[in-house]
Design a protein around this nucleic acid. Structure first.
Lengths: 125, 125
DNA sequence: TTGACATATGAATATATGTTCATATATTTA
DNA sequence: TAAATATATGAACATATATTCATATGTCAA
């Protein structure tokens, strides 16, 4: 049973997809990444795919900063910055350290910088 | 005039941001990436930050494919796939070649694979 | 303990985005 | 030319997301 007949069964209606190139499709299906990995991957990129968050990451790649420093640098409200920091924290892209009233944020590891640098190289070419 | 007094003037109200760490803030402000570059960068990551699109890129990294092949592989409608291909095309992440009734898509360059691989390495660690 | 400050967060709102549906366009074949 | 096939796309809809506002939490200093 090939994939198209699978769809046929699944949708219980005539499958409009003809799958012209069976060989390519089968080859790709064998090598396809795990769905859950690809989900994690797109989640990672989604976190980098926001103007505010990429600016936060850019700033943190230069120096550890507290929330109000970031708000100052980005010219945004403390609340908006804090919400975005939470998303980056949840995604383990940044870590934090508390010191008195302040919370200092920094990048979680070199990997993130590498990914961002690689992206920037693509932009610049 | 520092940034906070700028915000003060701009918002024409009392600025709640105290900018505790002037040195860090000034240092970061000097080294910050260009806003337009960071915009392009987040736009790039935004395109990679969708489950459907990352699966398309994953599939195309294995083989050139036409739209109906992709629809078959992703088990999605031709229309949904076509819409996402358009986004990837607009972002110059993929290129296409027409052959008769078919349109074959492939990755635009190695860079994209590298970025995705780097992201995957981060996921896997 | 009270007040000031730094940060976090829930709710509301506005906007962005992905999929579906219907249909248009383009190419091939009968 | 007409029908079939492959792809593209506009509109509608549902959902996701970012920011604001109000307020809660936590820490320090007086």
């Amino acid at each position: 049973m090939n994939i198209c007949s699978y769809i046929y069964t699944m949708k219980d209606e005539i499958c409009q997809i003809e799958c012209i190139h069976t060989e390519s499709v089968e080859k790709v299906n064998r090598s396809l990444g795990k769905s859950s990995d690809l989900q994690s991957l797109s989640d990672l990129f989604k976190m980098l795919g926001d103007h505010t968050r990429i600016r936060i990451i850019n700033a943190l790649s230069i120096s550890e900063l507290c929330v109000c420093d970031l708000a100052c640098i980005l010219k945004m409200s403390q609340s908006a910055v804090s919400h975005q920091l939470r998303i980056l924290r949840t995604g383990k892209l940044i870590r934090f350290r508390k010191e008195g009233k302040n919370v200092f944020y920094s990048l979680d590891d070199e990997h993130i910088s590498n990914i961002v640098d690689q992206g920037m190289a693509h932009i610049m070419e």
